[in-house]
């Protein structure tokens, strides 16, 4: 380890990082978890959900896209930032139609897990109850737009890992949504059951068919340990 390193502070803790790293990557390696939804290992940073908002020398930045810098002071777990994160999670809940009690993603859902981690029991913002559809045209994969949080993880996975361009964003503002690369819907694309894209959806929006309850509720990813535990357990010292 003769590489050049930079040192910076996160919530009073000193962290060493490689200069090309983002704040989030460096914190992950140091076992400091910064909540996130759109950021995902192996995918290029996107910076859309803003859950990873931190303050860098007093200025708000997304930890997933902001590079580290020598001596920067990062605030992450402050009351102000946590409140902003809760508000953003709340926004994502009321923007779509998320019914955890009968969603097959419950327990494996990062949105739900993040709400629990941040101590949200019910959104404080009013539900919007948008009218959204489902694309079940494909034999093995389906899209439920009710649960989409527009994180672009399917779009990026399809492009960067699956080597396809099965998905893309259309519309703008509140009308923005994920579309498929075919006017015939998902069945018209080259999306396939072997694709990683559905596996990388943080919520129950892009799903493989016929395996919804293969793992029973209670035995799922976030049923025992909160989201982010894997990173926090990586703490070496």
């Amino acid at each position: 380890m003769n590489e050049k390193t930079v040192t910076f502070i996160v919530d009073g803790k000193e962290i060493k990082a490689r200069p090309e790293q983002t704040i989030m990557k460096a914190c992950d390696e140091a076992g400091v978890y910064i909540p996130r939804l759109c950021a995902f290992k192996d995918l290029s940073p996107f910076g859309s959900c803003r859950v990873c908002t931190v303050k860098v020398n007093g200025r708000p930045q997304a930890a997933c896209t902001q590079p580290v810098g020598e001596g920067i002071v990062v605030e992450s777990q402050t009351a102000e930032i946590q409140q902003i994160r809760r508000n953003i999670i709340d926004m994502l809940f009321v923007e779509g139609n998320h019914f955890c009690m009968f969603c097959e993603k419950s327990g494996n859902c990062e949105l739900q897990a993040m709400a629990y981690r941040l101590g949200i029991l019910a959104p404080k913002f009013p539900y919007m109850f948008p009218v959204r559809g489902v694309d079940a045209s494909h034999p093995d994969i389906f899209i439920d737009w009710n649960r989409c949080i527009l994180c672009a993880r399917c779009i990026r996975t399809s492009c960067e890992i699956d080597g396809k361009n099965a998905y893309g964003f259309i519309g703008r503002g509140p009308h923005k949504r994920v579309a498929t690369n075919s006017s015939a819907g998902l069945k018209g694309t080259d999306a396939d059951v072997s694709d990683k894209a559905p596996a990388n959806c943080p919520v129950g929006s892009l799903m493989y068919k016929r395996i919804g309850y293969a793992v029973p509720i209670g035995c799922r990813l976030y049923d025992k340990n909160p989201i982010g535990s894997d990173i926090e357990m990586k703490k070496t010292t």
């Binding site: 508000n87 009013p126 527009l150 703008r172 503002g173």
Partner: peptide, 21 residues
């Protein structure tokens, strides 16, 4: 702002709708 937000990030896309309401 609701109409002109690009919709990329959550706070602008959703927050402005909630503020308007």
């Amino acid at each position: 702002f609701v109409e002109e937000s690009c919709g990329y990030c959550t706070p602008c896309r959703v927050g402005n709708v909630l503020l308007r309401r």
